[in-house]
């Protein structure tokens, strides 16, 4: 079991998961998002290659209204 902190909240995963699977499972596929993993941008082209490992910190962001 691995623990990942996603947008500040800790989540557990029972089996290895890559970022593409994470995006699919959380209804984020096709949405305009950007992902940072441990402080580094994860380009969309690498979603399938990057597997989450225990202790990872993910930030998943969107554009919202602001000035």
């Amino acid at each position: 079991m691995i623990h990942i902190t996603i947008n500040g909240e800790t989540r557990q995963f029972n089996q290895p998961i890559n970022i593409e699977q994470f995006v699919d499972e959380n209804n984020l596929k096709g949405k305009r998002i950007a992902i940072e993993r441990n402080g580094e941008i994860v380009p969309r082209s690498q979603f399938a290659e990057q597997f989450l490992t225990d202790g990872d910190r993910l930030e998943v962001v969107v554009a919202v209204g602001g000035g």
Partner: peptide, 11 residues
């Protein structure tokens, strides 16, 4: 047009 960047709701 300015926009802000914020964490999205997961799931």
């Amino acid at each position: 047009i300015t926009v802000a960047i914020r964490r999205t709701n997961i799931g």
